[in-house]
Amino acid sequence: MSDYPTREFRVTRADLVRYAGASGDFNPIHWSDRVAGAVGLPGVIAHGMFTMALTARAVEEWAGGPGRVVEFGCKFTKPVVVPDDDEGVVITVAGRATGENDGLTTIALTVTCGDEKVLGAPKAVVRA
């Protein structure tokens, strides 16, 4: 159920390293199994902000270009565990327009990895 073309993004460990460098978020839970395990995580997890950035990418495509997002938010409800292999995992982003007001469209998002929702109540408001 999506008003917009559903987008899929493959995520590997290499993507996490690259995002760490670009964003400045070098938290070792995003690149070290040892540290991730020590704080009780099942393994290296994707930066929540990386999943959010991929989601924003879908939203901007749907909105018709950059610079149109006026609000964007979510909870990080389920960690995206990224295995140390070439396949990685696939994050799927679907969206539904739930309201329009004063030239602004509200988009309710569904962001999943496998069968599980990884973001809680993700929502964006975009300018037409």
């Binding site: 993004f9 993507d15 690259r18 995002y19 460098g21 670009a22 964003s23 978020d25 902000m49 990386f50 959010m52 950035a53 991929l54 924003a56 990418r57 939203v59 901007e60 495509e61 270009g65 950059p66 610079g67 997002v69 964007f72």
Partner: peptide, 21 residues
Amino acid sequence: EFADATGATYDAEVAPPTFPI
């Protein structure tokens, strides 16, 4: 660099929405 790392369209002027992070 940020746009490339997140696969976003780089339009040479405006940053992707999560860049302020």
